[in-house]
């Protein structure tokens, strides 16, 4: 066990955990930040996506020991009031079905649009391809990313 101080959503969090504990489980079990979801644990679905220094990463395969002082943003911290352009677009397009994958989808989309503010349809496809939506909400995910790009 070791003590870690993490910078998450603009706050400092502390946890006593084993160094190989994936960030995902520290967020969920230790900090109660359960908006970040577990889907596969092997980096193959995107449900656990968070931002690390502004980049979308899979928190299920990132050991807490590797986080250091890098800034983590989770779905809970993407915006104050749920009004990030991507979140607004997700509501307007009425994307969610079961909703379980959507935090990961939103975090992937938000990081992508920051780097690529005016994406083409192909760029959206490529950016979102690694995020699984078992409910098959892909059409609306694509539409919402497009809409969000007009809002930012």
């Amino acid at each position: 066990m070791a003590n870690y101080k993490l910078q998450i959503n603009g706050r400092t969090y502390q946890a006593d955990v084993e160094p190989d504990t994936p960030l995902l489980w520290v967020l969920r079990d230790d900090f109660g930040l359960v908006g970040t979801k577990y889907g596969c644990g092997i980096g193959a679905c995107g449900a656990c996506t968070v931002h690390l220094n502004g980049q979308a990463i899979r928190s299920c395969t990132l050991p807490v020991a590797a986080v250091g002082t890098q800034k983590v943003v989770t779905i809970e911290g993407l915006s104050q009031n749920g009004d990030h352009p991507v979140q607004k677009a997700w509501d307007e397009v009425d994307v969610a079905q079961c909703g379980y994958c959507q935090a990961g989808q939103i975090m992937t989309a938000a990081a992508f649009l920051k780097n690529t503010p005016k994406p083409t349809a192909d760029q959206i496809d490529n950016a979102m391809h690694a995020n699984i939506c078992r409910c098959g909400a892909y059409h609306r995910i694509k539409e919402a990313v497009k809409l969000a790009s007009t809002k930012a």
């Binding site: 359960v34 908006g35 989770t74 749920g82 997700w90 509501d91 909703g99």
Partner: peptide
């Protein structure tokens, strides 16, 4: 439920 889903509520 949109608001809860997009803000990651438990």
């Amino acid at each position: 439920e949109n608001k809860n889903i997009i803000t990651g509520k438990p």
